[in-house]
């Protein structure tokens, strides 16, 4: 990847804990700004102590609502994640692709599940 800019997550959010949606939003805003400016991006998770799906949904999953899958694939790279956290990120990405491809259809299967036994 040429002239990629590295976003150091720990330095950006000021914490090794990637566990809140607010911090995820801060990372997303920075990524969106860079990608919108035509930059390539490396997201560094070096020195992160803890990571949960909520943070990744906001920070990275949300990219698929603003950029195409091909753009993200070509211009974003992730470093510094452990193997198991990489698996978690993969789940988040697959979920995000489904969500933005077809978010309205989630509820159709439940249309027959109305229940009037509770107030």
């Amino acid at each position: 990847m040429d002239k990629a800019i590295t976003v150091k997550v720990v330095e950006l959010i000021g914490s090794p804990l990637c566990i809140s949606s607010d911090d995820g939003q801060k990372v997303f805003d920075k990524l969106k700004e860079l990608l919108s400016a035509g930059k390539n991006v490396v997201i560094s998770f070096e020195r992160v102590d803890m990571l949960i799906s909520l943070f990744l949904n906001v920070a990275i999953g949300q990219l698929y609502g603003s950029f195409s899958e091909d753009e993200v694939k070509a211009r974003v790279e992730v470093i510094g994640l452990s193997e198991e956290d990489m698996v978690l990120l993969k789940r988040v990405i697959d979920n995000a692709k489904r969500y933005f491809a077809n978010s309205k259809s989630y509820d159709e299967a439940w249309l027959s599940e109305e229940d009037e036994d509770e107030h």
Binding site: M1, E69, V72, K73, V76, E77, V78, I79, L81, E83, E84, M86, V87, L89, K90, I93
Partner: peptide, 14 residues
């Protein structure tokens, strides 16, 4: 039970 994870790398995950 958590050690076996498939290999993924940072530029092909997307």
């Amino acid at each position: 039970s958590f050690s076996l994870v498939p290999a993924l790398n940072g530029d092909s995950i997307f």
